[in-house]
Amino acid sequence: MNAVARMTQLDLRTVRPYRTQVVILLILTPLLAALWRQPTVAPVMVMVMSVFVAAYPFAIAEKNDLDTLYGVLPIRRRALVAGRYWFAMVLVVIAAVVGTLIGFAMGAAMGLPFGCVELGYLLVAAFVIVGVLVSVQFPLYFALGYTRARLVTFLPIFAVMAVVILAMDVLPKDSITLPSPAVLVAIAVVGTVALLVASVAISARLDARRVR
């Protein structure tokens, strides 16, 4: 196992004592989808919520002086930064799976449609949203530390939510000539990945400069 994977594993173990909280959070959230009678939205909601959980290691690290642990362990700081992003991705994937299962169960229980194609697009959209949130928030956490960054990180979340809501309302469905769905999906995924990669580099730079 390489250093980055070990750091991701460490992040998972860091969060493990709080797993009950996390599970409750991730399971209650999609119940809102039931209110909207849109079970396919469930995975999206869980995935967005997982971004909050992805910030847990920052908070726990600050409270328990894990920066010293990271300094004592035989790893490079860069591995920590990359590992944290992979930790977020692991959570997102778990959230997608859990959310999909919940949504599916919800759909079956409530007799609502659970379209796979619609689900597919929503998962991609969710990935983009999550990718943007992580890409914007993580550099702030690495640069300022959890407590100071927390005040600022809510802004991107609201901004993204606002954009999404506006987009859903404002954009008429057929007026813009969109490229074919496959291309759109490809652009979305690749773009998000590129954004994340850039974010990792920025985080690494900011983290290195921070005085601990």
Binding site: R6, R13, P17, I60, N64, L66, T68, L73, I75
Partner: peptide, 23 residues
């Protein structure tokens, strides 16, 4: 140090589980 640098809520067995992969 004069303070621990592990997750407070880890049990001592969790401390081992968390650190062992690195050594």
């Amino acid at each position: 140090l004069d303070h621990t640098f592990f997750v407070d809520d880890w049990r001592l067995t969790d401390v081992e589980r968390a650190l062992r992969p690195f050594y």
